[in-house]
Design a protein around this nucleic acid. Structure first.
Lengths: 156, 156
DNA sequence: GTCGGATAGTCAGTGCTCTGACTATTTCGG
DNA sequence: CCGAAATAGTCAGAGCACTGACTATCCGAC
């Protein structure tokens, strides 16, 4: 039985792409703060006071994973976690000054890193790159959470 | 300070792409064997008797990670590990019958899964998709392991 | 007011991934 | 032959990511 060519397997390519990114991140952005951690900081800059679950939704992480990431950021003093007085189940999250400062610093470095990462592609190719990846990811996610069909109005 | 749009961050997109793939893999291919594990099986179908390090190189995993993956496959009886009589540092790896059978079964399912995964893209777009991801990944890896420069012969 | 379903978060278990330090073996220079 | 550099593999430590089971809280129906 013949072996397959992994270069034609999108899953394999996706993994390699992430490894490549991880490598550049470590050398050009930060060895302390990871890319998912930065994503969380960024979500809280955009919308301070979000609860854990919603942050996870914004950055694409499930409840368990977001809990760990947030716990690490809390331990480093980059965000605060307080019970929502309106809803005792929720924790409301807010960056500390230190957290905001870290976000600012990493935003600059991240932009530089992205430039290097995407340098092999022309501007037009970069646009296509984003578009194709996004379409594939979104479609796969649809299969998990089928949106309510808009075709039949009786669905509402 | 404004937050950035993660949709323009290739690292974020790469992570989402892998999550999407993981989801499809779990539902359409296997809940026992993971995608990296399949990659190892596949490498050993192509080249039986490889040592650990080389398998890792083929599938893009470092020494530590490949050791864990191989240990799991060994525990499940999908491959055998024997000391290289010629070089006492190496372990030579070979699939068991069960391992070869598993590879055959998953090869079929993986092909189906890839079709579904890539269905949002036209055939032409799929080609571009592969090409762009590969170029970005390869370029980043170059930065880690600079190939010997072919331009100036004085470099040697 | 209380019961039941939905929701937010935690925890245990599994697996991938990397780095850096360590051991064992081989190989090469002298 | 012997010692040093290189190489293969292991191990500890950190972090990401998922599922499934559990707890606490809330909210709506009765």
């Amino acid at each position: 039985m013949a072996a397959v060519d992994l270069a034609t397997h999108p899953g394999h390519l996706a993994r390699r792409l992430q490894q490549a990114h991880h490598l550049l991140w470590n050398t050009m952005v930060s060895e302390e703060i990871t890319s998912p951690q930065f994503a969380v900081l960024n979500a809280l800059v955009a919308e301070p006071g979000l609860d854990q679950r919603t942050v996870g939704e914004r950055v694409g992480l499930d409840r368990s994973t977001i809990a760990e990431v947030i716990s690490r950021l809390g331990r480093r003093g980059l965000l605060d976690k307080v019970r929502d007085p309106q809803d005792g189940r929720r924790f409301l999250l807010r960056l500390t000054d230190e957290g905001a400062r870290t976000h600012r610093k990493l935003t600059v470095r991240t932009a530089r890193m992205n430039q290097v990462f995407l340098a092999p592609l022309s501007a037009a190719e970069q646009t296509v790159f984003f578009d194709l990846i996004r379409r594939v990811s979104d479609a796969a996610e649809e299969l998990r959470n089928p949106a309510e069909p808009l075709t039949a109005s009786k669905a509402g």
